[in-house]
Design a protein around this nucleic acid. Structure first.
Lengths: 374, 374
DNA sequence: GCGGGCTGAGTAAACCTTTACTCGAACCGA
DNA sequence: TCGGTTCGAGTAAAGGTTTACTCAGCCCGC
């Protein structure tokens, strides 16, 4: 018919330019099926043959072609992760954890960052579909329903990591913020703070809401009244933190402490306080949330509420895996704990030093300040 | 022979469960070849038909299967990027840039982070090969030659981004560090500094070497003698910065200024200085390198030397693209510039305030300090 | 009016695996 | 000894696309 060289012929004449499963089979004197089975550790192959095959594979540096592999098997072994901004230091930590756990379970990952840009969101989703991700974890907001439908319609398991609305068929990972935030508020209360502000995340974001709610509840438990004006909406960026702090600091009366919905915001607050000439914690106590690596290095080191990125990532992978493999019904709530980590950005409120210094037990966990460093 | 349903039959009987190119073809009343040509914007298709095809595609939400596509075309449209640690804030910025430029040129990206772990490096390379990345940019060190050979042997274009040894067939992207670092040293010299320390990166890293060399040269140009003990090897982490600063600060005599091979190190230095009760810049001036986003938020804001991540990423993508597409011989040197960004972490050396305050012009660029904030 | 070129669309092979099915050999018990 | 199992390996189809090749129809010039 055509004068193309038929496949088998090609393999015979060709030198070792393209190494594929046929090459391996030929050199090991077995069929391609045996090679395939060897690679996939299917136990029905004779150990002797397997050994021979592995040797040839090693010699040739043969790597199976992932594309062909997943084309026929229908499995990509790919898990997607969509985050807001990769440059926000929280996310790399999450990504790292997600990847580690995914790899441990035999998956690779596909990262997408939306930058809150509709165009990029579209691209992200498109990539996930095109590359046939077997499951996708979403940790950003603002992705339109129709976009998500593209995944849902294709029966791609989805997990919202502490974001997004309830949606039939989609798992939600929710964190118990209350414990950590209560600890934070109690810590401040014990130090003597009564005027505590809270800088939220973007309120479209579920987690931002939850954190704020937890704050309200905790504050109430401690018998502290928080004025409406003390709740400022931020956006989980450093700049947002600065802006929020500016509002707070230019008001008639300064709060004595600020809690933030995430560490990045707290860094912004710290910075704005610095610019305004306020000392932390002497003039203002600051608490963050997330306990990202960076918080150890802020000046002063940030008291914050730890949420284990790793646990979160792990839960996301596990949930996805459960979906994909159809194993036990994925749980909707994972016990992701939060807890206070006291560093040096919290102290007694302004002017209250003397009063409180006497009652030592009150300030449980509060570290003694260094003598006016920096 | 077998009683499997033949393919054509299947497509006829099946409901719209699996949407593939055949489905589109059927509904648009054309052949699959025409659909394929439409998708790939091959101009030989009749606009009328194309329109019909696009309509059906839209209706069905059809996305071509990337795996099948690249399996047959032999092109993955994937560019790899291997970095050290994704949690080091420098890299996300690089990744972002790399992705943006890659997408602009019609590629997607594959990220690998080695964490300096041989096992992970192996995995990274393996992924690049398996997923058939068309080119790989490497911005980490410690990848063993044999590992790289796996890529080289497969004729995968490689670009070392300011790392790694000269290696035949591999492009190197080198940055001109001299300009920026000279500006930095001159800035310090103008402020009156004569005892300047330098915290390097890991010296296995080419860029760390270059930066140190640039420092030596600049310092010589300014007629400043730098003692051997003032050069400390760091590792481009915050902890490394702290450790280096500790060595420096526990010495008999403190340097009056410290330059760092990257911003992350500088953050560590800033932190250690804070812990030691030193004021920056009053007791110690600090200069970073990279100008990562974070440096605007340190306390005090960090004077640093800017290297445009975006330019670097862009150059890497362009070099790779040139390789891949066999267009003009890729250049080995790209004009990536560095320049000083003066913020607030640099000032007059200890005790020299009065002397120098008079000669205003000397301190060109040095900002007036705020009155002992924090 | 007819042959030759174009145009544009269709057919089928190929890409590299996995895997259902087939089949020969070895082994076992009756 | 022979039929029936079992074990292990081979054959070939399938997966969704691209693309070389083929071919039908049309237009044009002579």
């Amino acid at each position: 018919m055509t004068d193309r060289i038929p496949k088998t012929e090609r393999h015979r004449t060709q030198n070792s330019e393209h190494v594929d499963i046929h090459t391996v089979a030929r050199l090991a004197n077995v069929s391609i099926a045996t090679v395939s089975r060897t690679i996939n550790h299917i136990p029905t192959v004779n150990p002797k043959m397997a050994k021979r095959v592995w040797e040839v594979i090693g010699e040739l540096d043969y790597f199976p072609n992932t594309q062909a592999r997943s084309l026929v098997s229908g499995r990509s072994r790919l898990l997607g992760l969509i985050v807001s901004e990769i440059t926000n230091p929280f996310f790399p930590e999450l990504i790292q954890g997600f990847e580690d756990v995914a790899v441990e379970h035999g998956y690779e990952i596909l990262i997408g960052s939306t930058n809150y840009d509709p165009e990029r969101m579209k691209r992200c989703i498109r990539r996930m579909v095109e590359r046939k991700a077997e499951g996708v974890a979403v940790m950003t907001f603002g992705i339109e329903e129709p976009l998500l439908d593209q995944l849902a319609d294709r029966k791609v398991p989805l997990v919202f990591v502490d974001v997004g609305p309830e949606r039939p068929g989609i798992s939600l990972l929710r964190v118990d913020y209350h414990h950590g935030i209560r600890q934070g508020v109690q810590h401040l209360a014990a130090l003597g703070h009564r005027d505590i502000a809270f800088v939220t995340g973007p309120l479209r974001l579920h987690s931002a809401h939850s954190r704020l709610a937890a704050f309200h509840r905790a504050v109430q438990e401690c018998g502290i009244v928080v004025d409406k004006g003390r709740i400022i909406e931020g956006d989980h960026t450093m700049e947002g933190g600065m802006a929020a702090a500016e509002k707070l600091l230019t008001g008639a009366k300064l709060p004595t402490a600020v809690m933030c919905s995430n560490d990045v915001t707290a860094i912004g607050v710290l910075h704005e306080a610095y610019r305004a000439g306020l000392r932390v914690p002497d003039d203002l106590s600051v608490i963050g949330f997330d306990n990202i690596h960076l918080t150890q290095m802020t000046i002063p080191p940030l008291t914050t509420i730890q949420m284990s990125c790793f646990e979160l990532a792990k839960a996301a992978v596990l949930a996805l895996k459960a979906h994909v493999e159809g194993t036990p019904a994925p749980k909707r709530e994972y016990p992701i704990e939060t807890r206070l980590v006291v560093r040096e950005s919290t102290g007694f409120p302004r002017g209250a030093m003397q009063d409180l210094r006497k009652s030592k037990s009150a300030a449980s966990g509060a570290r003694a300040r260094q003598p006016a460093a920096l």
